[in-house]
Design a protein around this nucleic acid. Structure first.
Lengths: 240, 240
DNA sequence: CGAGGGTTTGAAGTGCATCAAATAGTGTGG
DNA sequence: CCACACTATTTGATGCACTTCAAACCCTCG
């Protein structure tokens, strides 16, 4: 990937919308492309890192695990998502492990440059503030979902926050990655996911073929999932 | 309460540690003391507010609820905690309901002054950034606990993050508020809380009399609760 | 075609929720 | 200071949701 492309990818992030060219140029000059094989870790929980990352391909799972191996998945990121950046407020110490769940690629950038910019450029500080506020709300929502929604509803809610296409067969939504990973992402076991999906089909009438979910309209899902959520009905689309 | 006292309370907040006197003076000049009766709401979810608050007495429950009345409690705040401040990034729209679970008091301050300061004073922006990063980590921890820990462990973990006293009978920790509210705060039903506490007693040997929990040493709790958590053993004390 | 991972199914168990009711605790007015 | 009213907490009985363990199935890809 050329520097030009990297520049474009970085510039495309909402966080860097109003960023100065000088800053972006500095970032890009230090950028590295990284390919990550499936199953490999980008960094480990509690590890100190000096770079942050932008996903350009594949899927990166963020999670923590206990000594006994039980894991809690916080999120699964794909193209356009940034990770590790929040460590500028924690001396570079990460608060989760990042693992590629399939062959992925990221841009690696120095934390120091970002940190400096946030400290010296009020505009950048503002941008980070807004992004963090957004992330905060996202986390509140996540906690609410896990508290109030049952397994089939969580799947329905997740689907609603994915992009959908209108096809001749009806509305189409695709599971973006492994059902196993998604199960953990939604806080349940793979077996539970499978059964919950079956129940979701029965209750809402949606049809599932592999990763494809087809329905006549989105209300089939929202009528079922959204009553178990405090958010207003046109539920905010999931952020990248 | 005198303006002097208000000044002191505000100044005591970590967020305003490095704040300018001019700013603090402006805040204080617009401060109002508010008493809130038990059961009364400070503000409602999705409501637009123009003030933020600092708790000086009592306990304020933060939660959301569905149309059907199921509620998810995010946190329960007491003296020294700030709430509503994060709405400066959301045009004053709140993302939860705040209710006094007992007779409480808060200082009410204008959001506009805070917002202005965050926008114009880079130091304040930095302070807010650090605080938000901290809150973020707190939320990650919360989600992890609800995912990995079972009910008795969540109670044990919660106790460990409370202040404790060393008495002649052993280490003493007090439940800070209603067990019913705490149950919801920990994501379980009051009945489950009661039974989980009983189990915690059996498993760890701690003794409970009303709101008082007594044990020989904290390891009794940590040995039981902490294996179901990814955090390092000397678990960070809960932030205010 | 065969290996291996992802997914589903079955059977059984556990944990938590729910509903109902008893008990303990607290504050109030007499 | 006591009795009552009301709330908080506990207990019991039962049901449901999710997990666990085991095994089958399916799909993809070398």
């Amino acid at each position: 990937m050329q520097k030009d492309d990297i520049y474009k990818k970085i510039k495309a992030l909402k966080l860097f919308h109003g960023a100065s060219d000088a800053f972006l140029a500095r970032l890009v000059s230090q950028a590295q492309m990284l390919d990550i094989e499936k199953g490999k870790l980008l960094f480990l929980h509690e590890e100190t890192i000096d770079r942050f990352f932008i996903v350009t391909k594949g899927w990166i799972k963020l999670f923590r695990e206990t000594v006994e191996g039980t894991q809690a998945v916080f999120d699964v990121l794909t193209e356009g998502a940034m990770l590790g950046d929040e460590t500028i407020f924690q001396n570079g110490v990460t608060s989760y492990t990042a693992e590629a769940i399939e062959k992925s690629a990221v841009i690696s950038l120095p934390l120091s440059i970002l940190k400096e910019e946030v400290e010296n450029n009020p505009k950048m500080a503002q941008a980070v503030l807004f992004q963090m506020a957004e992330i905060n709300r996202q986390k509140d929502k996540e906690l609410e979902h896990r508290t109030i929604q049952n397994a089939p509803q969580r799947i329905g809610c997740f689907l609603l926050r994915l992009p959908h296409e209108n096809t001749e067969d009806g509305v189409l939504i695709k599971f973006p990655y492994d059902k196993t990973v998604l199960a953990y992402r939604l806080g349940m076991q793979p077996e539970t996911f499978s059964r919950a999906l079956k129940k979701l089909k029965q209750e809402t009438g949606v049809k599932v073929h592999g990763a494809k979910v087809v329905m006549e309209n989105l209300y089939q899902l929202s009528d079922y999932a959204c009553p178990a959520c405090s958010s207003e009905m046109p539920c905010a689309k999931q952020e990248a």
